[in-house]
Design a binder for these strands. Structure first.
Lengths: 130, 130
DNA sequence: TCCTTTCATGCGGTAATTTGCATATATGAG
DNA sequence: CTCATATATGCAAATTACCGCATGAAAGGA
């Protein structure tokens, strides 16, 4: 009764569809930033150096696929990685999360964005503390 | 000297380009088959149920990218997964390799192809042994 | 209310992928 | 050499993805 051959029939179409989310330079960079912590759109805009509608479009693709979720906070919208499977994939593709020193500042790689509201002192947190 | 911020500057373009190889249903299925063992084109053709030129084209994409290598054996050409990084990705995306019972037959999931040359008894090996 | 800021959406053109099909190449048998 | 089989390649049509841009919607301050 050892039915070796009837294995779980992976859904290659579904899997490749999810892989396609990451198979894009800017979306991959966004996901890399988000796996450290949630970020608002203006930060991601500064990180990518692309126009805001462009960033929002990539975010929409990720959101519609269930990879990320938005949390509105007044005028700003923060996005967070919520898909465990994709988080696991990122761990292998990009390596372990950088800058996750316990208790250390967020925004390790994220460049300071122009908006004064996102953070009081966007990136200097590390150095100012000295 | 703790330079937290200057991390290894991942090449998102290169990584997404390699992810794109797997972000395709048939290529993903091919890779899943190949990570068990090398397979010849006719087997893969039977597995996918697609015309031979179609299969050869996907194989070419994977070969040009360095994911797989061909080993000619007479009239047949066997393909083998050779990229360690991609093999590691597949492990996470598809789960551990199925049907890798030690010392057990190859061709677990691969359907028997029509060609009589690939294998004397393509798929029956398991049962014939009884 | 009006204005500013932050973000989202819709649309169109362009570029890249996908895929079917005709054909080319290579190997071995006879 | 000729033929059959296994595989590769080239090309074009169809589809899809990508990206810039104009505009829309929501929130908060004055």
């Amino acid at each position: 009764m050892a039915e070796y051959r009837a294995d779980q029939e992976l859904d290659y179409t579904a899997l490749s569809g999810r892989l396609k989310l990451l198979a894009h330079p800017e979306r991959l960079r966004i996901c890399d930033a988000l796996r450290r912590d949630a970020e608002c759109v203006c930060h991601l805009e500064a990180l990518l150096g692309k126009p805001q509608p462009y960033v929002s479009q990539q975010l929409r693709i990720l959101r519609d696929a269930g990879a990320i979720q938005d949390e509105k906070d007044g005028v700003n919208v923060f996005y967070r990685l919520v898909d465990a499977e994709i988080i696991a994939w990122l761990e292998v593709v990009l390596g372990p999360v950088q800058g996750e020193h316990p208790g250390m500042a967020r925004h390790k790689q994220v460049i300071a964005c122009a908006c004064p509201k996102c953070e009081p002192t966007p990136i200097m947190l590390l150095d100012e503390a000295a």
